[in-house]
Design a protein around this nucleic acid. Structure first.
Length: 416
RNA sequence: GUGGAUGUAGCUCAGUUGGUUAGAGCUCCGGUUUGUGGUACCGGAGGUCGGGGGUUCGAAUCCCCUCGUCCACCCCA
């Protein structure tokens, strides 16, 4: 094959495409119930928007962005995530959004990251995400996470787990970071290469190391929660209490640290165990400083994104209900030029009445026509030949029941 | 970016210690059958053996490089 999809990209073929649209519309319904409105932002933006929002030292910015110069010599980037753009839009259209205390927006579309492809991980992948901007209330954290869990349950995916953690704020995070570094410093040479590089770049990530030899050195490692400031600690406690009160099953994952710099306080993931290592189908959290950092007034917010490719794979795997493509109700077969013309007219008429129908283009026998009708999954084949033309009727065959009969008019076809 | 597996027809896969024109099943197309379908029978199409280089009288087979796919790490959705 001379051409194929670029590495890490894929064609979404009709069956999946149809199912994905349906999934999107189901999710959008639920988001609307929660008062979210859709926003569409550009697929590429100024590269420094993402560098600033996501963080200079994150993997996404350091090595995964698709960056290019446009003809005006601007440095642009294909968006690696959605939050930065939504926040940018929120600030840019301040006049529209400032009327409300809380602005709830959702988006959907492709994101791009230059990574090594794997199951459930692509260079172009599809996310559907939400951003609720304007409240510090733990109720917002809980409402939003519950909505996430609800989405999966409504789609028939019961078996998910909600993992929650707090990463602190600008006050306590530096403290946590320092304590961790102090503890780790003495044993640093014993740890794996990844941990050694994390030490400078993102020490919190050391907590998350899966290397068993590293883990043996970690007894007594300070955990994040014990180091949270009052405000963060209270907030975390409130979120936990609310989740309990509303009977939302969840686990506290002290190792859950996100790779985007803008998160503060609550972070969470929703996981499914059917995809192997790529178990996160939804992830996000609170970002109370990002909007101020990007030049706005200090405005707290909470958001997350769902990985649509992964979600589809999971739903497919557990054999959840997914709609199949609608098929033609009728296939019109005309033999000879006159009958063909009448078949064509009938096809158009059926479609005008809102009935899915297909015209048999090929010159051929009834045989070919029936085969075609069958291949299309049609319910009825309508046969027009010399006899039908002379005596002005339609021969109709119910393909599954192998039942054949005649009708006089198109109206009779409509009510079949 | 690191490590491992893998690549033969549209699909699933055979292919011996290196040996002539690389096979099978399914799919597809044609015919038996220009007025009745999924079956049956007959016939046919389809492959630079992922690509490039090397070893050899001779390479799908051995060696090197490269590209793609899959899995794990990293990271994330």
């Amino acid at each position: 094959m001379k051409y194929s999809t670029p590495r890490g990209t894929r064609d979404i073929l009709p069956d999946e495409s149809h199912a994905l649209r349906w999934i999107q519309s189901k999710i959008a319904e639920l988001l609307t119930l929660n008062n979210y409105q859709e926003i569409q932002t550009p697929i590429f933006e100024s590269a420094d928007l993402f560098q600033r929002a996501v963080g200079e030292t994150t993997d996404i910015v350091e090595k995964e962005m698709y960056i290019f110069q446009d003809k005006g010599d601007r440095t642009m980037a294909l968006r690696p995530e959605g939050t930065a753009s939504v926040v940018r839009a929120f600030l840019q259209h301040n006049a529209i959004f400032q009327k409300r205390k809380v602005t709830k927006l959702f988006y959907q579309g492709p994101m791009f990251r230059y990574e090594r492809p794997q199951t459930g991980r692509y260079r172009q992948f599809h996310q559907m995400g939400v951003e609720a901007i304007g409240s510090v209330s733990p109720y917002l954290d809980v409402e939003t996470m519950m909505m996430g869990v609800d989405i999966f349950q409504k789609l028939g995916l019961q078996d998910v787990s909600l993992a929650v953690n707090s990463v602190g704020c600008e006050v306590c995070r530096p403290v946590i970071r320092e304590r961790l570094k102090q503890f780790v410093e003495s044993i640093l040479s014993q740890l794996c290469e990844d941990c050694q590089s994390r030490f400078d770049r993102n020490p919190l990530r050391i907590l998350d190391c899966k290397n068993p030899t590293c883990q043996t050195y970690f007894t007594g490692l300070p955990d994040i929660q014990s180091a949270l400031c009052h405000d963060c600690s209270d907030h975390f406690l409130s979120v936990m209490t609310l989740l309990d009160e509303h009977h939302v099953p969840h686990t506290i994952d002290a190792h859950l640290v996100r790779g985007l710099d803008y998160y503060t306080k609550t972070v969470f993931e929703i996981r499914s165990n059917v995809l192997g290592a790529q178990n996160a189908i939804c992830g996000g959290g609170r970002y109370d400083n990002l909007i101020a950092e990007m030049g706005g007034r200090k405005t707290p917010a909470f958001g997350y994104a769902i990985g649509m490719d992964r979600l589809y794979m999971v739903l497919k795997e557990i054999q959840a209900y997914l709609p199949t493509q609608p098929v033609s109700r009728f296939v019109l077969i005309g033999m000879g030029s006159k009958a063909k013309e009448k078949a064509f007219q009938t096809t158009l008429l059926l479609r005008q009445k809102g009935i899915q129908a297909e015209f048999m283009f090929k010159e051929g026998s009834v045989n070919d026509g029936l085969k075609e009708a069958l291949a299309q999954g049609a319910t009825f084949a309508v046969i027009l030949g010399e006899q039908e033309l002379e005596q002005d009727f339609y021969t109709v065959k119910h393909l599954k029941e192998k039942r054949q009969f005649t009708v006089k008019t198109v109206e009779e076809l409509l009510v079949l």
